[in-house]
Nucleic acid binder design. Structure first.
Lengths: 345, 345
DNA sequence: CTAATCAATGAGATCGATCTCATTTCACCG
DNA sequence: CGGTGAAATGAGATCGATCTCATTGATTAG
């Protein structure tokens, strides 16, 4: 591939002048510039970014790490990030951690070697993340997405999970639900899920209701009816469920319908995240929508500011309670009316 | 950030020896190597990939362009690509074209400037893609994904859309369907969608049935019942539909159910792509599954071979006809029985 | 004891751009 | 017509690594 030097030679000027023709055209006489452009054209010259990056000590690249692209909430955020970054002349190096801490380490190390200008990460658990602890030693700016800011010491872009979950729970309570449960992936391993559970508990208590213990599913994004069955019958049968993410909610609704139950008549199901597909399934998913595209854009713009040396000022982004057909008012249960009202006490 | 030279100085050796300690440790005396590693540790030395890339004339980076990450079929493929690339020491620069030809050009140009070692692209239409035409001038290896190989002149990883669509259609015919339609996004603008329609037509004709004209939806991944309504009533009312992608199918099923129709009792709906979520919704989506993860992995491994200078040998990957609850045998229609059988002739 | 061999290291060029600083060119004015 | 300042250009250093080739030092064979 032709380099600047060969262009300069062909045009009969020095390297420096050829370089100027591209970076600061005003400093080059019109006729000279023409000659250089013409030579560049002939040689199919294409500037070498790697050389620029080395010389200018900036890569115009942002390293992005998300847990998985199989979850649309991350893919949709990434889509917006890519568009925003490109519009500002930045490229993204995209990686997935698969929720694996050792991979997180390798990935971040690799990106630092690549001298990315900034890191935008979503980690499994911000508070106890080894990789974040180590990043404090570094000068490369780092920004979290979705992870609650907590005490990780890094700025974070996302919604207030705590408040959002409270709002979701209150909404169900307003509709008349009293037996409300929450469903999550295994071990409540994601910090966001934990905050959502806490928000749920608070809202329940504020309404004088007893929060149910968390119902754990064996997988993070796929519901399993067996784990849920015990909570659907008896005195304390649930009338509404909040899932810590939309994939869990959608697959749960599918399983319930497959088992002959009606959503929302037999059970109201609410999600969390607001992935696009939730609007199109039937029943449409009632969920707390995180503005994924806004979050992605905000992450990029905040990161660019941080790269400029500014200290980020971040307010949580607004969540939207998206109503949907998967949630309705509680109906009279199959259990005798007397029992159901007694169970409320 | 500390560089090799400072490490070398601290260790009391030359640049060359310090470099060798990392790249070819055998050539360095044990005691010397220890000194160098120790110095590196003290200075928190981290090799600069940009400098390596410039010197070694390889970036170990692959440029990836997909139309959009909002469609899980691309996100799921990308997830697999990222894991496969990382396992081989490569990074991905990820971009989205948003089905925009001018963006395609900019993106590819940008990646060539970045001196990616290879390009893995999914373009809107491989046959009439300006960017592909221009890429023939370049030496950077280029591989298509999902795009049918056609006469673009580039190797391609994906399934045989033509055959897959034929198989899907035959499956519906085997179940007894005769009035089968196909639904696509606007203008049949994607080359894959066009092949799928052709496959459908062939299978219909082979069975002695008349293919219906394509039913176009105003949007690529979101169904619109109004566009479909005319085909659901009358003598030629359809009993089964194939959608050119899963998002279209899932949203269509939602719309039908919302309108009080039953899938598959009133209408069987089949998708195409095999996104993960299709398995979990109710009714589960009957679809032609493209092995998205396999495709992603194959794309990376093929590209790595191409980078080695090998000429790729590609056989289409096997699709899987995934049965699901959204398709059933045709039922007696509301229209008088005599009419429905007459309409077959 | 000297020559030959091999392991270990260093000096300097190189990758492809940009930047600083010096030098040349040019226009304009007295 | 020479001088002055601005505009245009060039020479060379630089970014951080790797590689070639030369050199040093140690070991061993003759």
């Amino acid at each position: 591939m032709a380099d600047l030097l060969s262009v300069a030679k062909l045009a009969g000027v020095s390297r420096a002048t050829a370089a100027r023709a591209f970076s600061t055209p005003d400093l080059v006489r019109d006729t000279t510039r023409e000659k250089i452009f013409h030579a560049a054209q002939q040689l199919a010259f294409r500037p070498n970014k790697v050389a620029q990056q080395l010389r200018l000590q900036t890569t115009q690249m942002i390293g992005v790490m998300v847990p998985s692209l199989d979850n649309p909430v991350f893919a949709e955020q990434l889509q917006a990030m890519e568009v925003a970054a490109r519009a500002c002349g930045y490229s993204l190096i995209v990686t997935t951690s698969e929720y694996d801490a050792s991979r997180e380490n390798e990935i971040v190390e690799e990106m630092l070697r690549q001298r990315v200008d900034g890191l935008v990460l979503t980690v499994a658990e911000a508070d106890k993340s080894a990789v974040l602890t180590q990043l404090h030693q570094e000068t490369t700016p780092c920004l979290l997405v979705y992870n609650p800011p907590g005490n990780s010491g890094f700025p974070s872009v996302g919604v207030d999970n705590h408040a959002a979950s409270e709002a979701a729970t209150r909404y169900l309570i307003t509709l008349g639900h009293q037996q409300i449960g929450m469903v999550a992936g295994p071990l409540l391993q994601s910090d966001r899920a934990r905050q959502r559970y806490e928000g749920y508990c608070l809202a329940m208590q504020a309404a004088g209701l007893a929060p149910s213990p968390l119902i754990e599913m064996p997988r993070h994004t796929q519901a399993d009816l067996k784990s849920l069955a015990p909570h659907l019958h008896g005195d304390n049968a649930l009338s509404a469920l909040i899932c810590t993410n939309d994939l869990l909610a959608i697959s749960l609704i599918g399983e319930l319908q497959r088992a002959g139950l009606s959503v929302p008549n037999d059970l109201s199901v609410m999600g969390f995240d607001g992935i696009a597909l939730g609007k199109y399934v039937y029943p449409s998913l009632c969920t707390v929508e995180q503005p994924r595209a806004d979050i992605g854009r905000a992450a990029i713009h905040t990161m660019l500011n941080m790269i400029q040396g500014e200290r980020p000022v971040l307010t949580p982004l607004p969540y939207v309670l998206r109503k949907g057909e998967s949630v309705g008012a509680p109906t009279t249960r199959k259990t005798p009316p007397g029992i159901s009202s007694r169970s409320v006490a």
